[in-house]
Design a binder for these strands. Structure first.
Lengths: 170, 170
DNA sequence: TATTGTTATACTCTATAACTATA
DNA sequence: TATAGTTATAGAGTATAACAATA
């Protein structure tokens, strides 16, 4: 990566950072969902397990806030992970309305595998540029995210469900 | 933007390019859709008008291929823009099955306004970093997009419809 | 009165199939 | 036989409202 001179690519859209970010972001999300699918997980599951690994015993409402989703959606996420025996709903010690969500041993194993998948995805996405450029790119993106006011670790929308029965035509 | 040293931000996800791209990409797409809404347009409309401005008279199938969407979806897009008097379906000179899509005068005006909206969006998104970093970021993103095999100017998914009746709660 | 978890409902978007008229 | 445009249908995702239990 040294050619920073403005090249006249065909499409006018392809020269805008806003479009490129949106395009690459959609690709990244979709690709990650595909890689996660063999583990029986969707990005939301991964996000929830990651959040839990940084602090178990949180209420569903707190987790929903941390992930930027509605508590109604969190119910489904927790249901699915609980059905698979990856998390447990326990009594909240301080609030009898709330549940305290905890990880099981199985979840720690699966999270490890999922993180390796995420590492592979990251590596494949950045395969085209060198080490220095990767570091600089990440710094730039972090800077943009902070300046735009995007909460750290919160991902809007984009489920891109590759697990469903019908949309398995990719 | 000079601090490229790895900083230990709170979230482990926030240090991955794949996550940051996806997060910023979703934000960019959503924000652009919001800015386009007052003009009565969705990103798909803008994309179609942009493609047409680079070559009128194309068939719907060709336009669909160029935009990376299915021809069934293109029908709806063309319907909506035709109802608003922005494009016309004419007889295709070479193929009586196909339509030749043309822009109207009104479309040129509106496209100008939409492009100004896109410029504002681009500027706001990049407001946090300097001129040199912007150029370098765009070059990096273009390089990633090319290396990943993403077709230039094609945007998957992400409609994020802010025009619909119900989802006007943002 | 406000909040947590839950369920139900409606709506949007997308994918697929099928049909017609042409090629 | 294959393709362009069209229409209809089914599925997934999401937003909203409403409810019971508890704060």
């Amino acid at each position: 990566m040294a050619d920073v001179t403005a090249r006249a690519t065909g499409h006018p859209l392809a020269g805008r950072a806003s479009f490129l970010l949106s395009q690459l972001g959609a690709y990244s999300a979709h690709e990650f969902a595909k890689r996660l699918a063999p583990l029986g997980m969707r990005p939301g599951h991964f996000g929830l397990l990651m959040h839990l690994s940084r602090g178990e015993g949180q209420s569903q409402q707190r987790l929903a806030d941390a992930m930027g989703i509605h508590r109604n959606v969190m119910v489904g996420l927790v249901d699915e992970l609980e059905d698979r025996g990856l998390i447990e709903r326990r009594r909240h010690p301080a609030d009898r309305r709330a549940h305290a969500i905890h990880l099981t041993g199985t979840a720690h194993d699966l999270l490890g595998r999922a993180q390796r998948v995420a590492d592979e995805h990251e590596a494949e996405l950045l395969a085209g540029i060198g080490e220095d450029d990767r570091t600089y790119l990440i710094a730039l993106l972090q800077h943009l995210a902070e300046h735009t006011g995007l909460p750290s670790g919160v991902h809007p929308g984009l489920n891109d469900n590759p697990l469903s029965t019908t949309s398995r035509r990719c």
